[in-house]
Write a protein that binds this DNA or RNA. Structure first.
Lengths: 213, 213, 213, 213
DNA sequence: CATGAATGAGGCTTCATTCAT
DNA sequence: GATGAATGAAGCCTCATTCAT
């Protein structure tokens, strides 16, 4: 009737919700959708299992809320990346290498994405609010590419989405496929020198590719 | 596992095992480890659930058998790839593009790999027979790179594993992350023209990168 | 129940109570006691779930209030039935046929009665105010029968309660058992011609029976 | 493979199934569909809750199996009723009074029917095998009525279904509405003299009605 | 080797109710 | 008198696994 949420109460509700979401993000990222246990999520929380149904309607709703908040969080973080070098070649290398760091910093997110793809995107496909979340990710790239084309230093047959795909593939793979790749090729992706090598490498790859005519 | 089966039944025993393995591969690839149902696997088989325990000891053993046979099968297929062009630049492009095709032809396998990585490689890590399966994958690359280095057309700071990682990242991503990426960027990875573009692109990327000094 | 509400709120209090009662009547009649959901009742109301506990003490109290108000309402409606023909044969036929109509007009009530009988009358048995509610229902019958007996047109071994029971059985059955009977005998009780036939029939039955010596 | 069920095993399976069905019939008849507890059913059984899902798929399947077996059992019992008097008037009276007894002997069944009608017949409507179960119930009546019509002792505007409906209404009501009716009119339907009166009465009603022209 | 029957532990969800404000 | 948040108990169901034959 008042229209105004009472702050003290809302706070608690918000906290409960946030708490559940945070724990659920961890658990889903760790165990996948089917592997995650509603009981485990609840136990790690200040509240009870019942609240999952109160706030999210069920396991599925909770998982979708996790997906949405994870994507939203990651895009926000992405938009804080600063790549304002004037030289497009330097800029693109910076972007590639910062993206590399960014992925390493958000491994849980990448696991969630892998999990969602195992489900063939059936849940994300129902989150309408994410339907337009791609755009910002390529806008910075658009700019850099435009400058590079103007200056004639970049090849012409490449657009922002191509570059984004290449960089994403590489950076995601480091995290998502680390275990099997590491096992088969006896490689440790957490070693500092190897990591530095791999970081420089994605810069080399992108620059080498784009500057070849 | 429990001694020698009687000869006249051996045929059927082998068939039963193979049947289970084939169905289990499909089901695990489709639903993940936790999501897969022992009942479903048994139902889609000529035999009964009991046989899963008889031949594989349980769900876990079956999953590991699936992993092993999948990796073994994929490496065999890889070794049939023919890239015998003398020009290392042409050869490496061919290899990249054939690998691209190869991944698209083995999507179930890529899903299994994604699933196993969600489990942090805990199952593959216990399959000793796969521990050395990586080598053949890079030997062809080794050759091509060696020739390229001899001829001075390839940069020197790159080894076979680097190239393999780059190509794998790209090709795996097409399959493994198709759903979320497709959703966020409104891209259909099954479109023929797009697929041709993406196929050429990985060749461009690898060649552009390797030939930059 | 808890003293006198403040006058200016009394109006609303009464409205809230009535609102709850009306919705609860619908929901209990639709789903039974166990099947009814307190949440659903509250949702379909202008007020909140809390009010159910405030006004009725809980689900059980609400259900009993529903029962009481339903019985009270039905008896009031019954008493408005006008059967003032002097000829007892005509009068009894009229009464039977009007009762038939009356039941068709109050199907929710009949469902509530069926539900309460499933519970072996344990709730109605605790509503003392209903304990004497039967009498008025037979008083009109008493009169008609008395006149018929005086005139020697009705058989002597029948009292008002017998006739009431026969008519009630027939009229209740039309509503209460409509679904199973309709299914098994492929009969549609809502068809107009059939309904007219059935209406006349209860008149025939009662008159035929009473006038047989 | 053999085609022949192995008797010893089948027996147990059949016993388990039958055990569940018998207990479930009691519990559903006692508490209704929503009110019945799967746990309670299982507890009263030689087996475990799990078997309900194994044999019946779930609570709903079990309830439907109960409905089906109850209807089937009741029709079998009905067909054992012997009413072979040549005089149609005597025969119809016998049938009415035996039906009266029959209903009193199968109160759980009548409760189940009441419950199913609360659910608007949604479950019985899905049991195709019951769709033709009505016929036998009216065939005996058909015969008797035919004889009565031939002899000119029965009125002509009545068919078997009408008579069946009248008798059913009366007999069902005794059981189904006993509690509320008994409470409101202070009547005890289990009293022996009242029961005898009520039994004779349905005979009187039917005969009186049918023999009135 | 094979089968149908059986199982216990644990999964997700829903219920009526109460609390703090 | 009213609200949204919270709850514990209990509900139905599903899982991988094993047993008797």
């Amino acid at each position: 009737m008042t229209g105004e949420p009472r702050p003290e109460l809302q706070r608690d509700a918000e906290r409960t919700r946030a708490d559940l979401l945070a724990v659920a993000t961890e658990v889903f990222a760790e165990s996948g959708y089917s592997g995650a246990r509603v009981d485990e999520i609840a136990e790690r929380t200040r509240t009870t299992k019942r609240m999952i149904y109160y706030y999210f309607g069920g396991k599925e709703g909770l998982y979708m809320a996790v997906l949405e908040s994870a994507y939203r969080g990651i895009r926000e973080a992405e938009q804080r990346l600063q790549v304002d070098h004037v030289d497009p070649v330097v800029a693109i290398r910076n972007l590639a290498e910062l993206t590399f760091d960014h992925h390493l910093d958000h491994q849980a997110f990448i696991r969630l994405v892998a999990i969602e793809n195992i489900h063939r995107g059936e849940y994300i496909g129902r989150i309408d609010s994410l339907r337009t979340l791609g755009q910002p990710a390529t806008s910075l790239l658009d700019e850099i590419l435009a400058r590079g084309h103007e200056q004639g230093v970049f090849r012409a047959d490449v657009d922002a989405l191509d570059v984004h795909l290449l960089i994403s593939s590489y950076c995601v793979f480091q995290v998502a496929n680390r275990y099997t790749f590491g096992f088969l090729f006896d490689v440790d992706f957490t070693e500092t020198t190897r990591r530095a090598h791999l970081r420089r490498m994605i810069g080399d790859v992108v620059v080498g590719w784009l500057t070849t005519h």
